[in-house]
Each structure stands twice: as C-alpha cells, then as structure tokens.
Amino acid sequence: MKTYEDLPSDGGSNIMDQVIDQREQLRRRLDQIKHKVCLMSGKGGVGKSSLTANMAACLVLRGHKVGILDADLNGPSIGKLLGVSNQEKLEITPEGVEPGQGSMGIKIMSMDMLLPSADSPVIWTEGKDATAVWVSTMESTALQELLKDTIWGELDYLLIDMPPGSDRIDNIRDLIPELDGVVEITIPSPISQHIVSKSITKNSQLGVSIIGLVENMATYVCPHCNQEGQLFEGEDVEKLSKDKQIPLLGRIPFDTRMSRQTGTGKLFIEEYGDSVTGQAIAQVVDNILKFIQNKSN
C-alpha cells in the first residue's frame, strides 16, 4: 500500500501550497521593511499605544519612514491617536489594502479602519457559539492578513502596538521571525512589574529578543514649573532590569497633555517635543536605534 509520501498532493486542496503562497506574499511585504519592533506589556493601560504613536513620530523626526500595525484587534487605538478617522473609505485593490495616512505621514493599519462605525465591536461570524479556540484562530489569521495585505511599501520601521497581555507574541514571532525585538513597557507599580517580569521570561523562552524596558508614568512633571514629583510609590524598575539583565531604555514622566491630545490627531511629540516627557521619549527612541545598530553590526 502507498504511503503518505507516495501521494503527490493532498487530493486537490493543495493546503501546503496555499500556506506557502501566503507565506511568500507576507515575505514580499516584510522584505520592504527594514526593521520591525514590537511594543508590549503584560499589563494593560500602561501607555503602550501612546508611546508607540509618539515613538513613531520621533522616528519620523529623525528622517525615517514609519508604519504602525495596530495588533490590538479588540481595542484598537492607533487610528484615533494618529487622526485617521474610522469613517475614511478603505481602498482595496488587487495589490492589497492602502494603509491609513496618519499624522506626520505615519502609515497605519488598524482593525478600526475595517469596521463600519467607531463603536462596532470585532465579532467573527461564528458569533455567540464561538469557542475561545475559534476566536483565537480567527485573530491569528486576521493578524496575518493585516500584515501581508497592507500596502506598506518601503519602510524603515514598522512598530507594532500589541494588545495587553503576552498571548499574541507567539503569533508575531511566527509571522515576523526577523523581528528586531520587543520593548517592554511597565509602570512603577509592583503588580505591573510582576506581570511584565512574567512577560519577559516568556519572551526569553520563545527566543524573542528584548530590546529593553521602559518605565512609563515614572514621575509627574508639573507643566507649569517643570518640577518632577513621584506619582506611584513603587518597585524599583532598575532592580527588575538588573534581575532580568535587560537594559532600561528610559523613564517617561507623566504629562497630562499627553492624554489631552488623544483624539485630535496631533501627537504630543509634535507639540511638546521639548518638554521633559518629550525628551524622555526621544531618549528611549535613541536607545532603541542604538540597540538595532549594534545588533546589525
């Protein structure tokens, strides 16, 4: 009797060929992007999206072409932060889908751009009966489509704004094996550091390289007198950095103007680049660039 290897194909479906086709298309897209960096945190609400947007802006100011993939499928916020309205028409051609043009020429792709209204939820047609496995598989296929079908064109940097938690990093690593690394964002609270520490361990085990740690909302800067004060009474991020042996890329002070900007499309960096917080973000970006440069040398 014939064995598996004796049979030339799988009976007409060519499942393997289809998978290979998809991968090749993804490869063609990714090969036009020099560097890919993931911003993540085991913890929610620590400023991943705000920092992704503002770090992208810093990269543009340094002369780079930048795109952002909003990998937070259920809680997309990149469109809002960069002033791409959900109501803009989605341009789909046989070539792919045109990314949104955000502030400062940053190209974005986000689930928000696919939904009919700003408050439409992401629901896959399997609906109420969908099991967690099903939803998770749909999400990983969706991520692949967002990456491979978006006409990113030539980019120097693609930043990936991750959803809270560390589940999706497996997908990203699988889709982008050449990922330059991840930036872990934390805030000075014991709970945040505890969770981020887990996320760091997971990344190490997966072989995902970690560029470093960023401590957001590290201090509070008074917008009137530029004096810094403590915001959280917390764990020392330097200890976490030492324990895990990953560099601390910077500490970013809290600045109320950062949250106020949300929704106007103008980025904090554009208007307040000279503030203490603005400079701290720029410092983090420079450290990331240094890391990438060292790695490629």
Partner: peptide, 16 residues
C-alpha cells in the same frame, strides 16, 4: 486582500 476578515467579520465596512 483581507479576504478572510471580509468574509468572517460580522460587522465590516461595505468596501471590505
């Protein structure tokens, strides 16, 4: 492009 999402999202834009 976006074929799986277009055919599987319960609520998606017309263009999609």
């Amino acid at each position: 492009p976006f074929g799986m999402m277009g055919s599987t999202l319960a609520e998606g834009k017309e263009e999609l």
